[in-house]
Nucleic acid binder design. Structure first.
Lengths: 325, 325
DNA sequence: GCTTGCTCTGAAACGCGTTTCATACCCTAC
DNA sequence: GTAGGGTATGAAACGCGTTTCAGAGCAAGC
């Protein structure tokens, strides 16, 4: 029992074309006809069916976003930034949680092929480059980390600079033996951070031992485990760089339990500047995550409006010193 | 240059109807024709246009979710739960961030009217009941807190029970003078919690002073301010119930700064059991937020499949005792 | 007076699947 | 032998807007 533009047209004694023009604010409609149409819309309580609009226009004004885990603070902030831009442009946001599952990811990519979204924002992507390459034939894509695919633009945090900030700071505090703890060692972020770390280590002749390295850590609980392994070692580092504030908070927690004085006995520096780092007084590398989302979305909109954009974009980081270093 | 089912039909020497049947796994298609169609789909690299599907089917297999702020941990967990269910049912999620702005909210509600989503999940709603009432004529809606609209189902946390758990626990620890700190005093949650608190207070003859009440607090920083105001008072409560772990963490932080011993000098209990509560050793009332999202989404799917559901649903809470009480 | 160029309007085609309905075939049951 | 019922297929209508194109009206320019 939906009202359609045909009924409006009939009631207002104009053609469907004219109704469509009124709805789309086309200038060539005389005032009297416009008023008649608007009145009919009122009286019949017309509500447009946007599936028809999308079909005929060939676009949907929807952006797709895929992330591994919505409730990870990094991604929820990223989405928040993207959402803000979408609101500004009156676009909607189609969100998908992949759980780092390749099938889920591929399934979501179809939304672009199926014309359900006008563009795609990749919070993370585990698909091989050739898949992304093929996908980019179907629409514009922006990746929130270096994608390894030159057909799509990317925005990312300057991980090298971040690691360097952290290490410069620790060296200034007199540390020479510094451990590393990251999340997914195989993700772009993980690889970049590890590379930058070991490069720096070599450049500055820092001490090293394989048992000072940890990966696959994401939670507070993980941090506690890392700390236990670390503090068990007789020859241990005097500081550690940690890829996540949550993990770092776990390490601080365990240090307190074991009575190891921070920062004098052991220093910890995290990444992200999540709210948690404030209460546990953790030094950290602040990542402008919301801004990252905003920038990624803006880049996508530029491309949707046929503007050229530079394909790699980096955001800068800053050091926030608190009492853990 | 899109391939359409017509081209497939031509190539496979069948009708469009048959192609449609193959795509929809309709049983009445002979194997040889089905194969011919599938082959043509392969060769022409056919990709369906789902806007056309949505238009003719009258549904989109998309759920809408609206929340005030995506990166608030409560809502990101809620969305994560919803997203999980959506993945299970192969539905997509259209997400909107309202920033508690009524216009944003109304704008998003149109997605249901416009037939862009099959159902709506309200993470929060500030619209008056009559708006929600009218909206529910356009599709199924589930609200994640008591909505005040009897036409839609709701799932919510049992706030009364939560407050009671917290207060029972504090009384057991010998507290008689207990403060209260909540977020939005005008939201459903805020009202419920305050009511339950004051009811309990009266029932058990607890001490009270108007300066022991705080609202509009959401962040760690807010918590620090609350603590400062609190600790300035000569006649102050011996414990406080706080509606958010973040705010509670701020209070604990300030207590430490001021050298007030916790829990002996002052006890704090939070709500949510966010990760932060673990590292700061905060006692808290655990809210099953992800489960709340899952349940809300499940309820919506039940309704989309024409099943009756009970209109009010509550989830239970549990006390997590740590070192702050 | 006639061309040029806007303004305004509607018929028809288009975007692309799905669904209905009619038809035809085949087998089983009586 | 034939009525009944399942299987298989296609033509045409349908869902509902937008866009193209052609044409009419009207004013300004020469």
């Amino acid at each position: 029992m939906m009202t359609t533009i045909s009924e409006i047209a009939q009631k207002a004694k104009v053609s469907r074309t004219t109704v469509s023009r009124v709805l789309n604010h086309h200038p060539y409609v005389k005032a009297d006809k416009r008023d008649a149409v608007l009145q009919a819309i009122q009286e019949l309580q017309y509500v447009p069916n946007f599936n028809a609009v999308h079909l005929s226009k060939g676009r949907t004004n929807v952006l797709g976003v895929i992330v591994p885990k919505i409730d990870h603070p990094f991604f929820s902030q990223l989405i928040a930034g993207i959402g803000e831009v979408c609101n500004r442009y009156r676009y909607s946001l189609l969100l998908h949680q992949s759980n780092n599952d390749l099938n889920q990811e591929l399934h979501f990519f179809n939304q672009l092929k199926y014309k359900l979204v006008d563009g795609l924002l990749l919070g993370s992507a585990i698909s091989p480059p050739h898949v992304l390459d093929e996908l980019s034939n179907y629409g514009k894509i922006v990746c929130c980390e270096a994608s390894g695919c030159d057909k799509m633009a990317s925005v990312s945090v300057n991980h090298e600079a971040g690691i360097q900030l952290a290490l410069d700071h620790l060296r200034e505090q007199g540390h020479q033996n510094i451990g590393l703890c990251i999340g997914n060692a195989k993700s772009g972020v993980g690889i970049k951070r590890a590379q930058a770390f070991f490069q720096y280590q070599q450049n500055y002749q820092l001490g090293w031992n394989a048992s000072w390295y940890f990966d696959g850590n994401y939670t507070i609980e993980d941090g506690i485990q890392v700390a236990r392994q670390l503090f068990r070692q007789s020859h241990r580092p005097t500081a550690i760089v940690v890829g996540s504030d949550y993990v770092a908070a776990g390490i601080l927690y365990e240090a307190r339990i074991q009575g190891i004085p921070v920062p004098d006995g052991f220093a910890v520096i995290g990444f992200d500047n999540q709210p948690i780092s404030e209460v546990v007084e953790l030094s950290t590398i602040d990542q402008p995550i919301v801004e990252l989302g905003i920038m990624a979305a803006e880049l996508l909109f530029l491309q949707l409006h046929d503007q050229q954009v530079s394909s790699t974009n980096q955001l800068n980081l800053k050091l926030i010193q608190r009492k853990s270093t």
